[in-house]
Nucleic acid binder design. Sequence first.
DNA 1: CTAAATTACGAACGGTCGTTCGGAAAGTCA
DNA 2: TGACTTTCCGAACGACCGTTCGTAATTTAG
Lengths: 199, 199
Amino acid sequence: MSKGQQTRAVILSEALRAASVEGFQGISIGMLADRLKMSKSGLFAHFGSKEELEKALLDESAKRFMARVWEPARQAPRGRPRIEAMFHGWLDWSLHNDDLPGGCLFVTLAAEYDDRPGPVRDHLAELQTRWQGMMIRSAQIAIQEGHFRADLDPKQFAYELQGIFLTLNYYRRLLRDGSAVRRAELAFTGLLTRSAATH
Amino acid sequence: MSKGQQTRAVILSEALRAASVEGFQGISIGMLADRLKMSKSGLFAHFGSKEELEKALLDESAKRFMARVWEPARQAPRGRPRIEAMFHGWLDWSLHNDDLPGGCLFVTLAAEYDDRPGPVRDHLAELQTRWQGMMIRSAQIAIQEGHFRADLDPKQFAYELQGIFLTLNYYRRLLRDGSAVRRAELAFTGLLTRSAATH
DNA sequence: CTAAATTACGAACGGTCGTTCGGAAAGTCA
DNA sequence: TGACTTTCCGAACGACCGTTCGTAATTTAG
């Protein structure tokens, strides 16, 4: 890895940490340069604009999410086991992620960008739509395997699964409610129970 | 109402609109002054600091929410009807609120402030905790009235109800998914069904 | 080792930020 | 109407924003 790519990776990691707490609106080139003890212009040169930095952060975060949540889950057996693996990986990503002190970046950005048109919003929405697609397909496989009810609506399943994590973030990080994780787990087992095939 | 209070109310309304889209980080004194065709310093004088403006916005938004969602629901009969009224008022607040073009301010702020300590975060968290309390008490009443199962966990009920609205916002505003409202309604009727007493 | 290419820096740009202050304008009340 | 208070404005403050540019330092490749 060349020196440039190496520096770029360090910048992305630090920016990811900062953005998970402050959002994209809350980070600045100068602040990142200070933290990394390098010059504004030197840091800036790696991306050409703040918007490009933001898009790079989206990609980096998606890459890490896929590596940590999706890839391991894909190793699990098709159907319900895979969905359970997905849930636990996602939970682990949300709770024990030292790279993201402010929690999942996508949750932070979802609210920040949902009404602010532009390339960043578009990029974020596409990544999130893609993730919905993976959840939907996983639910379809579980139906196909006979683990889930044949009349289950896979998209509704994805909707409610996504909701569990949005709510987890809200209860845990904003309300600082100690029972948040347990409630998320309860919600998930409830969702599984009512999705399960009755045989 | 004196001239000052009148102006203050106008500022709050405009700031509320802007903040629902951009968040508190995205609004500035200068931008609000421009939109209202008044001077920065004139606008500023009504609050003394940006932070005071932000706290005033939290209170104003909470006041409107209570007037539009909670007060009407309180008129409904105790128990399940009141909870259904709450849901529909909340849905109406989320969907048809011309005063908040960016959707519910609390949803926007929840992600923005969950990891940023300070008076604004504290104020927001307290308002939201209070709202959780109202939902919990409503669920308790529904149990008491025999509408909900005696072994229902009221806090888990509140958790999942809150989740429906967080997810609605995400699907509707970020993903622009046309089925978002229907999915929220489905999730709510599902929640009601599994909370209902079996008599 | 040398020469070319990459990477990093410092200084400066026009703008906008929140905030301060003194005085002009407008509202309030006898 | 007149006196007094409240409301508002314009100018300015230092700080920080994203961005540009010429140049120095370092890395890379022959």
